[in-house]
């Protein structure tokens, strides 16, 4: 066990965990930030996507010991009132079916728009390709990313 001070959603948080613990489980089990989802544990499905210094990152294979000073943003911290343009677009398009993968989708989409505010259709599909949606909401995901880009 070791103590880490993490910068999560703009707040310093201290945790005492095994250094190998992926940040996903630190968030979920130790800090009760359960918006970030477990889907595969091997960085294949994207459900666990967070922002690490603004970049979309898979939290399920990222040991807490490797974080250091980097800033973590989770779905809970994407916006204060749930009104980030991507969140608003997701509601406007009514994207979710079961909803489980959508936090990861939103985190990937918001990181994309941060670095590329006006992505082409191909760039959207390519950026979102790492996030699996078993319900098959891919068409609405694309539409919501475009809606958010326009706003």
């Amino acid at each position: 066990m070791a103590t880490y001070t993490l910068n999560i959603n703009g707040k310093k948080q201290e945790v005492d965990v095994d250094p190998s613990t992926p940040i996903l489980w630190v968030l979920r089990d130790h800090l009760s930030l359960v918006g970030t989802k477990y889907g595969c544990g091997i960085a294949q499905c994207g459900a666990c996507t967070i922002h690490l210094d603004g970049k979309a990152t898979r939290s399920c294979i990222l040991p807490v010991s490797s974080i250091g000073e980097q800033k973590i943003t989770t779905i809970e911290g994407l916006s204060e009132n749930g009104d980030h343009p991507v969140q608003k677009a997701w509601l406007e398009v009514d994207v979710p079916q079961c909803g489980y993968c959508q936090a990861g989708q939103i985190m990937t989409a918001s990181a994309l728009l941060e670095s590329n505010p006006n992505p082409s259709d191909e760039e959207i599909e390519s950026a979102m390709n790492g996030n699996i949606c078993r319900c098959g909401t891919y068409l609405r995901i694309r539409k919501a990313v475009k809606t958010a880009a326009k706003s």
């Binding site: 918006g35 989802k37 809970e76 959508q102």
Partner: peptide
């Protein structure tokens, strides 16, 4: 009429909704 998902806001803000989120 087109009616939005009643859990939509909770889903897009990562609120605990699912079994795996129970604590």
């Amino acid at each position: 009429t087109d009616t939005k998902n009643v859990d939509g806001q909770k889903i897009v803000t990562g609120k605990p909704l699912f079994g795996l989120d129970v604590q």
